[in-house]
């Protein structure tokens, strides 16, 4: 069973990799958007899926990353990809500062506070805070990224750039999931009192999860700014956060494959439903409800962690 699953993964990866050859620019660009959202959703998955914190304000961190890139690139001409680490760092710092006092809030109270943060960030951006965000116009004229002197501008080129980062993300987050840290997060999600009782510093771990998710969202912000070449506050509104939230839950909390599949659905379906024109979002709403009813734990919930008894090393994933 286990091998079969790997064959499917590999097949999917190959299909995705060669797809730009078969697709036109539009569908390639749809895949680019999906790729960006895969990264974002995976970063939210650490917070919401693994650690179980109700976080509906992920767009705030994404915005910090995107604006950091946009401002420094347009003002000082620093190449966009160089700004990626800094964008992630600032998003992480921002998360650290705001999450510290609120990390202990339970479920729904945390939810509204994170919604509050994303709205505050959006309002601050619109009101041109510090005079550097360009207000409602946003920032335009962001450079295209260059790699080894090659300028990335067509959807096909962006495809490989974005999906390279998606691959890196999947690899690293998979490592994280199976680390001691990942197991601790899952314990907190299932029962944080018991986790604390077993000696896990829950506040500390929750904070780290939050910061990791935010750093990654910051990285995505850089890619987004580079791809769009214009960013405006409306790209980071509450609805974006809701979309990400839905992706993680629809795909399966804590499951990388699930979240990827969820992104394909949540971002891909409205594009497919374009033939319904004005009714496309209506169909989308119905599909959302139906999906949740038929797969309440998400399309692909993570398999339960199982451990071998015969004294083998390390945890092993069940198929």
């Amino acid at each position: 069973m286990k091998n079969k699953r790997w064959i499917v993964y590999a097949a999917c990866a190959v299909v995705i990799l060669i797809s730009p050859a078969a697709l036109n620019r539009y569908w390639t660009d749809v895949l680019n958007v999906i790729g960006l959202y895969v990264m974002l959703a995976l970063s939210l998955n650490i917070i919401l899926g693994h650690c179980g914190m109700f976080h509906m304000g992920h767009a705030a961190f994404y915005a910090v990353g995107a604006y950091t890139t946009a401002i420094l690139n347009t003002a000082y001409g620093i190449p966009v990809l160089w700004l990626m680490p800094l964008s992630g760092l600032l998003a992480g710092l921002f998360a650290l500062v705001i999450a510290r006092p609120i990390i202990h809030l339970r479920g729904d109270y945390l939810l509204i506070v994170t919604i509050g943060f994303v709205e505050i960030v959006r309002i601050a951006l619109i009101n041109n805070i510090f005079g550097i965000t360009g207000g409602a116009n946003g920032i335009f004229g962001i450079d295209r990224p260059t790699i080894f002197g090659m300028k990335i501008s067509t959807p096909g080129q962006f495809f490989y750039l974005i999906w390279f980062f998606v691959a890196v993300t999947i690899y690293l987050f998979r490592k994280l999931e199976h680390s001691r840290f990942g197991r601790a997060l899952n314990y907190i999600r299932e029962d944080d009192v018991a986790a604390a009782g077993s000696g896990i510093d829950t506040g500390h771990y929750k904070l780290i999860a939050f910061v990791i998710g935010a750093v990654w969202a910051g990285f995505c912000g850089t890619l987004f700014a580079a791809k769009m070449t214009i960013i405006a506050p409306e790209s980071f509104n509450f609805w974006e956060s809701v979309l990400l939230f839905m992706i993680v839950l629809l795909g399966g909390r804590g499951s990388i494959a699930g979240v990827i599949l969820g992104t394909f659905l949540v971002i891909g379906l409205p594009e497919i439903f374009r033939q319904f024109a004005t009714a496309r979002m209506l169909v989308f709403g119905v599909v959302m409800v139906a999906m949740m009813i038929f797969r309440p734990e998400g399309i692909l919930p993570p398999p339960p962690r199982t451990y071998r008894l015969d004294g083998d090393t390390g945890p092993e994933e069940a198929a």
Binding site: K4, R5, W27, A257, A319
Partner: peptide
């Protein structure tokens, strides 16, 4: 699990195409 997974993936790709 495996079968369901394959079906889900197939459905998504069929929809996309």
């Amino acid at each position: 699990m495996g079968k369901r997974f394959i079906t889900s993936v197939a459905v998504v790709f069929a929809l996309l195409l």
